[in-house]
Design a binder for these strands. Structure first.
Length: 363
DNA sequence: AACGCGTGGGT
DNA sequence: TACCCAAGCGT
């Protein structure tokens, strides 16, 4: 590509962005971006769509308008507010990052890429995005959108992730000295609205004349990606244990790993062979009809729900009784909200069900 | 370096 | 329907 052409690219994109850029809650129209808003939105947007993030972002900003209030909040409150958004390590890291910024940086997010990179939950993409959007530093923010747009612009046939180093260099060379933040956001808007994964709308693209993917007629097929393998199905049980006063037993999951720190309906392991083991309390369990199905990133899950009622019992380790009307406010991930909905549909409160073939303490 | 880590919407 | 995918990070 000639120098003249490559120099024209940022200007064309910025002009397009000025006219057609999206209006999003974390973009301050005509005002200087707020680093806290930029950081919060970027963490939420990791592997997550704008549509999914919008309500969560507004809720967080209302509940914790600045990083000090977020840092002072109990982690469980943050997990409750994050529940349903997925990738819960982000919520734990968000809270840890807020505390680190307050304790080590006087409550202001650092400006340099290197310092940002040291903070929990901030990797190369997010550090670049914050540096560029919040502080207008000339850093690229290379996410999935940018990888797609630039793969097409240069008709890169090397599949991802092998092409990442090349794409990163292309992105770096494209960043303009001025308006680096707008440029980063413009590139993502272009990918989200025009240079979409399927059926890109090349007719209205500001880069259509320079796009080799379009010229070669392969834009819609790029970027190439290495094949991903199939995911297994795992099975398990969940124990819906209600108490006579209208409360249900919930359990806190271990702090790390899948759904770390979140609440759950107590259950068995999730394995490819239906597991055997002990229920959390001795009771008469009955199997509810149907299954709860859910798909995680790396496996499908089928949960069979067993229900029982007790008069009273001391909660087992990591468990506590929660009034059923308060369950919705708990830090329950989506899979567990499905379990709760399934159980509540089948088990009317205060009408204890007799076990048909009681098995005590075992399922 | 490859894998674990959620969810809901689009096609 | 059964994929595919989205502003990635931590280990």
């Amino acid at each position: 590509m000639t120098p003249a052409l490559s120099e024209a690219l940022p200007g064309k994109l910025l002009a397009w962005y000025d006219a057609y850029g999206r209006d999003l809650p974390w973009r301050m129209k005509g005002k200087k971006p707020d680093p806290y808003s930029v950081w919060l939105s970027e963490i939420m947007l990791q592997q997550t769509t704008v549509a999914a993030v919008r309500d969560y972002y507004n809720k967080f900003i209302s509940q914790w308008p600045n990083i000090e209030t977020l840092a002072a909040a109990p982690l469980d409150d943050v997990l409750k507010a994050w529940a349903g958004l997925g990738y819960y390590a982000r919520a734990r890291n968000l809270h840890a990052c807020a505390k680190a910024v307050v304790e080590q940086h006087g409550g202001s997010l650092p400006r340099s890429f290197e310092e940002l990179l040291k903070l929990p939950g901030i990797g190369p993409y997010t550090a670049g995005a914050i540096a560029a959007i919040a502080y207008d530093a000339p850093h690229p923010a290379v996410d999935g959108n940018v990888e797609r747009v630039l793969s097409r612009l240069h008709a890169i046939e090397t599949p991802l992730p092998d092409s990442k180093p090349l794409i990163r260099k292309i992105a770096q060379d494209l960043v303009p000295e001025k308006r680096a933040g707008d440029f980063a956001q413009a590139l993502m808007d272009l990918g989200a609205t025009i240079c979409t994964p399927k059926s890109p709308n090349c007719l209205i693209c500001p880069w259509t004349d320079q796009c080799r993917g379009r010229i070669f007629g392969v834009a819609g097929t790029l970027p190439r990606k290495s094949a991903k393998k199939a995911i297994p199905t795992r099975k398990g049980y969940a124990f819906w244990l209600t108490r006579n006063d209208g409360s249900v037993l919930l359990r806190r999951r271990p702090e790390k790993g899948l759904l770390g720190g979140m609440m759950e309906v107590p259950g068995s392991e999730w394995t490819e062979k239906l597991p055997e083991g002990d229920a959390p309390l001795i009771a008469s369990w009955r199997k509810l009809p149907g299954k709860v199905e859910h798909t995680f990133t790396h496996f499908h899950l089928e949960i069979t729900v067993l229900a029982a009622t007790v008069v009273d019992a001391k909660p087992p380790p990591y468990c506590r009784w929660v009034a059923v009307q308060d369950v919705d406010a708990e830090a329950l991930p989506s899979v567990m909200r499905k379990v709760v909905a399934h159980a509540r549909k089948m088990v009317p409160l205060r009408h204890p069900v007799q076990g048909r073939s009681p098995r005590h303490g075992t399922y």
